[in-house]
């Protein structure tokens, strides 16, 4: 859960674009936004390309504790 969600990433990217398109951003800030945007875009694309569905079974032990385990594929 250390990575931000894809939804958060997309929201940040769209915010960057909006700020870059605004008239009042100065050139240094625009360059910084552009660099951040390119880095995030690349990361998002790589993340989607490498994504693999995770399926886990939720088990409850006798004490009521929940634990996750890989689902047996039978």
């Amino acid at each position: 859960m250390s990575l931000p969600s894809i939804a958060d990433e997309l929201a940040r990217l769209e915010d960057i674009v909006r700020r870059l398109e605004a008239d009042d951003v100065d050139l240094d800030a625009a360059l910084a936004l552009f660099e951040e945007g390119v880095t995030r875009l690349r990361a998002a694309r790589e993340r989607l390309a490498a994504a693999e569905l995770k399926v886990q079974a939720v088990l409850e032990d006798a004490g009521g504790e929940l634990r996750l385990t890989e689902l047996d594929d039978d």
Binding site: V17, L20, E21, L33, L41, L48
Partner: peptide, 27 residues
């Protein structure tokens, strides 16, 4: 749908490039 999201990301990429070139043109 991941295809739709990749398309959306491409759109953001185009706007990003366009935004910067617009900004440098103004400068």
């Amino acid at each position: 749908d991941i295809e739709a999201i990749l398309h959306r990301i491409d759109g953001v990429g185009r706007r990003l490039a366009h935004g910067l070139s617009g900004r440098t043109r103004v400068a």
